[in-house]
Structures are given as C-alpha cells and as structure tokens.
Simulated scan of single mutants.
Amino acid sequence: MTTTAQDFILVDRQPPIATITINRPRQRNAINYDMWSKLADLVEDLDRAREVRVVIFTGAGETAFSAGADIADFDRYRADSAKGKVYNDAVDRLLDTLATMDTPTISMIRGFAAGGGCELAVATDLRIAAEGSRLGIPAARLGISIGHREMRGLVSLVGKGNALYILLSGRLLETEEALRIGLVNQVTAPEDLETVTYQLATEIAGLAPLSHAANKRTLNQVQAKPALDNLTVEEANVPLAQFDTRDYQEGYRAFLEKRAPNFIGE
C-alpha cells in the first residue's frame, strides 16, 4: 500500500483551535519532501478559516516532535545543489506561510526537535516543551548549513551569539538551556504539556483575532525595517486600523461593562 504526505499529517479541528500532528512516530516524525508542501497547504487553509484562531503543531508519540528532514530523501532531493534548491523551495514555502499568516501558532514539543523539526518550531509564534525534550540544529554533523529564512528566524529568536552556539556546536539542548536562551517560551512537566499548551491556546483564541494579526504584521515590519523611516502608508496604518473595527468597540464596551468581550474578527 502506498502512503502519502496526507497519511503522515493529521489535522484535528476543534474550533477555535486546530492541531496539526506530524504522524510518523516510527521515523521520529521525520518530515519528507512531500510533507513540507502538504504542511504549507494545510496552514494556508487553516489561516483562511475564520473559526480557527490558533494552530498547534505537535508530533505523534512520546519520542519526538520531529527529528527533522527525512534522511531517506537525501539521494533524490538533496544530492547536489540543483536538487537541494527544489527541496529548499518547499521548506521555504512553509516557513514563509508561517511567518506571514494572521493566525497565532504554537509548537507543543515532546522529545526531539532536531534539524528541520527545530526549524519548524522556531518558525511558529510560541514553543512549549516538556521536560526531557531536546532541541537543536546539528546541520554541521551532516556537512550542510541552514537556509536564509531559517537563519533569520533563529537569530530573531535567540540572538546572534546563541544562534551560532546552536549551529557551531551541533548540540541538542536540554530544555533548561533552551528556556534560558529563549529557544522555548515555557517548559512543563511531561504530564502537563497538553493541559498547559491548550490552556494557552484557549486564552489566545479568546482575545481579538484582528489584534493578533496586526501585532504579527507590525512585528514583521519592525524586523524588516527597523529604522521605521521607510514604512509605506499602509504599513504605518496597521496599528491605527484597529480603532475602526467592531472588535475594538466590543472590547472597549466590555471593559467598561466589566464583562468578557465577544470578538468576531471584524
């Protein structure tokens, strides 16, 4: 029986939260070439779904979030620079989608998050890890390097020095060190990982989705144009546009009336 990328990726929609599970536990949830494109398709679809307000990524089983790119792909897709470009384009599409999507994303990490698995986690907005997990990008052990998008995301998250420490050492960091350098946002006991992650997702989903989207866009603009002196009119107006939304009026009234707001994304 032939298996496809769809067999290796599970999607559970429980609005307002959707969960994407990398489902190859026997391969430590390694991601093959077709899966990168499938993940990008799924993320784009979920970002268009108004009822989905948070997307959680995780890996099946207890061993790994994802051990990274599937080594079985290397002969076919990464044997030389020409083949490598085709492979990297598929990875870049997912990373670009994660970077620009309006919907908040969380990586729920249990076990190994290595190589491409770590890069996927870095590309999401937040990372919650169970104690005992290990994270890193040991590309130098294979004689390869990471792409520009992966490098940009890693440096933005942990800074130049820590990014080089991760890459030059090739180490997989324990959760305590990963938390210290900012590679993860929170570390929990393994038995509490799902509770903590879904509680955070529920809190995020209950807040204004347009505010989340505007904050993510503004963050991207600040990183792309740190001097802020060459913003377009449209970019400069992103924070101000929130005052013209129904959600702002609802949030303001709810605050005055001392009740929970009901945001609708308009």
Results as ranks from 00 to 15, higher is better:
Pro138Trp: 04
Pro138Arg: 06
Glu203Asn: 04
Ile144Trp: 07
Gln186Cys: 11
Leu193Thr: 01
Arg171Glu: 10
Ala123Phe: 12
Pro190Glu: 01
Val158Asn: 03
Asp125Ile: 03
Gln186Lys: 15
Val155Leu: 04
Ala113Lys: 04
Ile137Asp: 10
Leu135Tyr: 06
Ile128Arg: 13
Met108Gly: 01
Tyr198Trp: 08
Thr202Asp: 08
Ala121Thr: 08
Val155His: 02
Val187Ser: 12
Ile204His: 00
Ile166Tyr: 05
Gln186Glu: 13
Gly136Met: 11
His148Trp: 04
Pro138Gln: 06
Asp125Lys: 10
Glu150Cys: 12
Thr195Met: 08
Leu135Asp: 09
Arg149Gly: 09
Cys118Leu: 14
Ala130Asp: 03
Asp192Thr: 09
Pro138Cys: 07
Gly170Asp: 03
Ile146Val: 14
Leu120Lys: 08
Thr175Asn: 07
Gly147Arg: 11
Asn185Tyr: 08
Leu200Thr: 05
Val158Tyr: 02
Ser145Glu: 13
Thr197Trp: 10
Thr195Arg: 15
Thr195Asp: 05
Arg110Val: 00
Leu164Val: 02
Thr195Ser: 10
Phe112Val: 14
Gly182Arg: 10
Arg127Pro: 04
Thr195Gln: 11
Ile166Val: 14
Leu142Glu: 11
Thr188Phe: 09
Tyr165Thr: 12
Arg180Glu: 15
His148Ala: 13
Ser107Pro: 06
Leu135Gly: 11
Leu142Met: 12
Thr175His: 05
Ala178Asn: 07
Ser133Gln: 06
Leu126Tyr: 15
Val187Lys: 07
Gln199Ile: 00
Ala114Asp: 02
Gly115Arg: 03
Gly182His: 11
Val158Ala: 03
Ser156Cys: 08
